[in-house]
Simulated scan of single mutants.
Amino acid sequence: MDWQRDAACADTDDPDLFFPISLNGPGARQVERARAVCRRCPVAVRCAEWARETHQRSGVWGGVSVEPENYGR
């Protein structure tokens, strides 16, 4: 997981930004802000791959938000 030290989110003051409570309303705006960080991230693809490989259940990983209907997949 050496790639994490190169992640754009490693410099953020608000790690909760990447874990919205909802994907609707204010949560949707939060997801967009998280994705903006991911768009400038040099390891976004690796981050999204890692989230899939490790079956992450919540959060925005590499610009991809984990949807509740995908839990357990």
Rank of each mutant, 00 (worst) to 15 (best):
64 V>I: 10
71 Y>A: 14
26 P>C: 01
73 R>I: 02
62 G>Q: 12
12 T>S: 10
19 F>A: 02
37 V>G: 04
6 D>Y: 08
11 D>V: 03
5 R>K: 11
63 G>A: 13
48 A>G: 02
29 R>L: 04
4 Q>S: 10
9 C>Y: 03
14 D>T: 12
15 P>S: 14
66 V>A: 05
46 R>T: 12
31 V>E: 09
60 V>A: 03
43 V>K: 08
4 Q>A: 14
41 C>P: 03
19 F>L: 12
42 P>R: 10
50 W>L: 02
53 E>M: 10
44 A>K: 07
61 W>L: 06
14 D>M: 07
22 S>M: 05
57 R>I: 13
64 V>Y: 04
16 D>G: 13
35 R>Y: 04
23 L>G: 12
41 C>E: 05
26 P>I: 09
51 A>K: 07
6 D>N: 12
24 N>P: 00
56 Q>L: 08
25 G>I: 06
21 I>Y: 13
58 S>W: 13
30 Q>G: 01
42 P>N: 13
64 V>K: 06
33 R>Q: 15
56 Q>R: 10
32 E>H: 10
49 E>Y: 01
19 F>I: 07
31 V>R: 11
55 H>M: 08
36 A>L: 14
8 A>K: 06
52 R>V: 07
4 Q>M: 10
52 R>G: 02
23 L>R: 15
35 R>W: 00
7 A>I: 07
66 V>E: 15
55 H>W: 09
36 A>Q: 13
35 R>K: 15
57 R>F: 03
45 V>D: 15
55 H>A: 11
67 E>S: 08
46 R>G: 02
51 A>L: 02
28 A>I: 00
70 N>D: 15
16 D>E: 13
70 N>E: 15
40 R>N: 09
6 D>W: 05
12 T>H: 06
68 P>W: 04
65 S>A: 14
2 D>E: 14
60 V>Q: 08
48 A>L: 01
46 R>F: 01
44 A>E: 00
27 G>S: 00
43 V>F: 05
8 A>F: 09
67 E>H: 12
44 A>I: 04
69 E>W: 15
27 G>V: 01
68 P>T: 09
40 R>Q: 12
8 A>M: 02
43 V>S: 02
58 S>M: 11
18 F>H: 06
17 L>E: 10
37 V>R: 07
49 E>R: 15
28 A>D: 03
34 A>L: 10
16 D>V: 02
35 R>C: 04
38 C>W: 06
2 D>A: 15
13 D>M: 07
37 V>W: 12
35 R>I: 00
17 L>K: 03
23 L>Y: 09
60 V>G: 05
25 G>C: 04
2 D>K: 14
6 D>Q: 06
49 E>C: 04
39 R>C: 05
17 L>H: 10
30 Q>C: 07
36 A>E: 14
66 V>H: 02
56 Q>W: 07
29 R>I: 01
57 R>T: 11
64 V>D: 11
34 A>T: 05
6 D>T: 05
44 A>F: 05
5 R>S: 14
21 I>W: 15
42 P>E: 14
